[in-house]
Computed example of a mutant assay.
Amino acid sequence: MADQAMGLRERKKLQTARRIWETAVELFLERGFDAVSVQEIAEAAEVSKMTVFNYFGSKEDLVFLPMEEHFGDAARAVRERRTGESAVAAVRRQFVEMTEARDPAVGLHPEPLSRQLRQLVLETPALMERAILSAQKGTRDLAALLAEETGDAMLATVAAAMLSAARNALIEEHHARIAAGESADQVAADAAERARQAFGLVEKGLSGYAVKA
């Protein structure tokens, strides 16, 4: 009985968090992030302002908390890679798997919500700053992991920056193509090949790239 009760409580908590988040996102997209107060979100979600902060530590968390884990995707891919698999191969494999799954974190979900949230972030300085800081932390975490394995912090920093840049460039291309009118399925059709090209450039260490004639 205790386990069942705990399960019910946890489900109710998840439902409450989901309702608060959906309410906040709807208001943000309708009126803009800065024009909506936490009190307004609480009233619309039929909870107290304190409840909102119990689930989401800040107003920015109402946008980022569900997606923030994805800033650590590259580090997670390296940490969990297979025996004999290089760091670049692991990040490439994870990225391709995410494109095949149409993961919103790589800009390929067919529903527009993830792209609407991305646009909200781009248009809101406070959210943009949070995104930049979170992305930088993801790259630092990847560099720290590689440095721990290899013993060379400088080269680990270079490698982490290149891997992060490749992922970001691919995601930006996905968003740009969809914004230009392609469907998520059309973009996904050659996403694996584009990932192979991007990470291939990293894998070669830019050798022979952009040699001036």
Rank of each mutant, 00 (worst) to 15 (best):
A192V: 07
N54Q: 10
K13D: 14
A180G: 03
E97P: 10
L206K: 02
A144N: 14
T157S: 12
T83F: 11
L27W: 01
Q197L: 05
E203S: 05
E123F: 08
L155N: 06
R9I: 08
E173T: 05
E193W: 06
A166H: 01
A131P: 06
R93Y: 12
D34G: 05
A153L: 01
V25E: 07
S207M: 07
T16W: 09
R18G: 10
D61E: 08
K204F: 09
L29C: 09
M6P: 14
R140N: 12
E100W: 06
D103N: 15
L170I: 03
R140G: 11
A189R: 12
R93M: 15
R11S: 10
I41N: 02
F64D: 04
E173S: 03
T139D: 03
Q94L: 13
F199A: 01
M6D: 08
D103R: 06
A166E: 00
A74K: 06
A180W: 02
D185T: 04
A161Q: 03
A87V: 09
S207F: 05
R79C: 08
L62S: 02
Q136E: 11
A89S: 10
A184F: 01
V47M: 08
N168C: 06
A210H: 00
G205A: 03
E22N: 11
E30A: 15
Q94W: 10
R19V: 10
L142K: 05
L62M: 05
A2P: 12
A188E: 04
V121E: 00
M67H: 14
D34Y: 03
A159L: 11
A35E: 12
K49M: 15
E172W: 00
T83G: 13
Q39N: 13
D141K: 06
A188R: 05
A42N: 09
A213L: 03
M6E: 14
R19K: 14
P112D: 07
A165K: 00
A17N: 13
T99G: 09
A184K: 01
A192I: 06
M67I: 11
V187Y: 00
A198G: 05
L27Q: 06
G107S: 09
I41F: 05
I41K: 02
E26S: 14
A156H: 02
R82Q: 15
